[in-house]
């Protein structure tokens, strides 16, 4: 990669992270808002990880919370049962999720499963893990016993975890930008557009799809612990079908393959959700999800570009300006 590319990959991520760090100060360390920011950052990271398999490679994956749940519960239980630090646990979670994705993806792609059958297999994966985890975990909610400090990545207040999540988000943003500007990104997009034509120009479709799937799953496995801590609890319901669909909604409404679009969609939907919950939560609990589902339908019918149609124009302007400074 040449220097200008390094800048376009790292700079947006750093900018987001830097702006992000000011938020706790802006809200006066109000824990409600910091937690909200933390949850938004985690959802944005999950949706941007989905963007790799869904947005670039064009596979409608509905299993995100299979990997979030697996990695997260593994890291959490290693901590609570064996006092293993999540610094290690999160990497183990990433590894186990990656292994699961490989085990599922290898035969699926080997036999050319795509389109609706891929979507179904991934939806089925969540159901299988959901039911299997009832057998192992029982039908209970687990609350994480209170431990504190950087060793456990758990704190009395939410700021530190939030800063840590910002680093993860910055990494996921850079990874997305790197992919979109590298050979892998071109190849994944070609696969998304037409697998047969992609193969005919020499693209190993199976290899690249598997690479996208495993990358996506390992990021989610890593983030799992952060997700569970930010929710304060985990159970068999962490393997959630509806949540996995929600991630795909964010990815599509944001615009397939658009980093700025998916990022904005994750934040906007989270804010709308909180707003509606605050006003109508007691009366109409599912309203925000109903609206998001409608939004998905509208984006599907009207403009498959999603939010990215707006955000891309803006980011392009900014990029051109930055490139002018450096040239």
């Amino acid at each position: 990669m040449n220097p200008r590319n390094v800048i376009t990959v790292i700079l947006p991520a750093l900018t987001v992270a830097l702006i992000g760090t000011t938020i706790p100060f802006l809200v006066g360390f109000n824990q409600y808002y910091v937690l909200l920011a933390l949850q938004s950052v985690i959802m944005a990271s999950i949706a941007l990880a989905w963007n790799i398999i869904g947005g670039y490679a064009g596979q409608l994956d509905l299993a995100s919370f299979a990997y979030v749940g697996l990695g997260g519960i593994l890291a959490t239980m290693l901590m609570t049962e064996y006092n293993v630090t999540p610094w290690l646990g999160m990497f183990l979670g990433a590894g186990v999720s990656a292994a699961l994705a490989f085990t599922i993806g290898f035969p699926l792609f080997r036999f050319g499963i795509k389109g609706v059958w891929y979507a179904l297999s991934t939806a089925a994966l969540v159901v299988i893990l959901h039911e299997a985890s009832i057998m192992f975990l029982g039908p209970f909610d687990y609350y994480i016993p209170f431990v504190e400090g950087w060793y456990y990545l758990r704190f009395r207040t939410w700021e530190n975890l939030y800063y840590f999540s910002l680093v993860v988000l910055a990494f996921v943003i850079s990874l997305n930008l790197y992919i979109s500007r590298s050979k892998i990104g071109y190849y994944l997009k070609a696969i998304r557009e037409d697998e047969v034509a992609a193969e005919a120009v020499g693209i190993d479709v199976r290899k690249y799809k598997l690479l996208a799937l495993v990358t996506y799953a390992s990021i989610l496995g890593f983030i799992g612990y952060l997700y569970i801590v930010s929710q304060r609890t985990f159970s068999y319901n962490t393997f959630s079908g509806p949540q996995s669909v929600y991630v795909a909604i964010v990815g599509i409404v944001g615009g397939l393959g658009s980093v700025s679009g998916v990022f904005s969609a994750a934040l906007i939907l989270k804010i709308v959700e909180e707003y509606l919950r605050g006003f109508l939560g007691g009366v109409l609990p599912g309203l925000h999800l109903l609206l998001f589902g409608s939004l998905l339908i509208i984006v599907g019918i009207l403009r498959p570009g999603g939010l990215s149609s707006l955000t891309d124009a803006l980011t392009k302007k900014i990029r051109v300006r930055i490139q002018r400074w450096y040239s």
Partner: peptide, 26 residues
Amino acid sequence: RPFYNMSVIEAVTAGALLRTKDVLKA
């Protein structure tokens, strides 16, 4: 078999990437 959601230059670049890893060169 067109790549509808890629630009023309991107589609052809995807072909050129068979012989190089360098996106700019491609």
